[in-house]
Nucleic acid binder design. Structure first.
Lengths: 114, 114
DNA sequence: ACGAAATTCAACTAATCGGTTGACAATTGG
DNA sequence: CCAATTGTCAACCGATTAGTTGAATTTCGT
């Protein structure tokens, strides 16, 4: 189990409950209970999801009395985004550019002095 | 099993073999055999990974004789990237950039033809 | 027509996942 | 001190995953 950073990031993000928790955390620190609340799920279930996010480095945990306060830790998100951005050429430019080139070539053939 | 598009995209990307296959496909169309070659894995194993990528809409398959030619299909990658970009404020610019965006939006409202 | 090549499919295994329940530990308020 | 609150942990369950093997299918080259 070599476990790349992108592995754990992407697999943490693959679950809608966990993405929902991140969305909730975007509004600020939350306790585990507050994170669990919108989901039809036991406390322990939510706790497990939080642990997955934590192991992926996507959140930080700060204990205050008996409650755990969770906040977003963005570094892995940034890395994942950088990785995805690498593919941008496959949806931007490429087809457009190809199409433009074809059209340009057609114009040139039809009107070589245009 | 409601299966959001982001679910399948992220879980397809969570596996290093599949990310490797995508990287290989960035260089152009490849057969299943060519995709399998760099990985210590049976043909059938590679075939399964390709099917996962296909089910996630990340690749297209074109049959030519007995070989299947695989190419990248970028739309889901783009969606995933857009989703991740949503978090940019958590690692970059932060307040600065948010403030700039708000100001830009304000200018637009005040002077829609500017 | 025959054998090799490219690929899928079905069946199996071991590991992991998302979820539950019940017991446990720490902290708080009365 | 006692009871409630906040959370974890361990054990379990059913479904899914990544991989294998072996057989089947289609196509190619001769």
């Amino acid at each position: 189990m070599v476990e790349n950073r992108l592995d754990t990031t992407f697999s943490a993000l693959a679950d809608p409950t966990r993405r929902g928790m991140l969305a909730s955390l975007a509004l600020g620190e939350k306790s585990i209970g507050e994170l669990a609340e919108p989901f039809a799920m036991t406390f322990a279930g939510a706790s497990k999801h939080v642990k997955v996010l934590e192991d992926a480095g996507l959140i930080a945990r700060r204990k205050e009395g008996r409650t755990h306060l969770i906040s977003i830790e963005a570094k892995p998100l940034e890395e994942a985004e950088r990785w995805l951005r690498q593919w941008e050429k496959f949806w931007v430019g490429r087809l457009d550019r190809l199409e433009a080139a074809i059209k340009a070539n057609k114009r040139k053939k039809e009107n070589p002095n245009g």
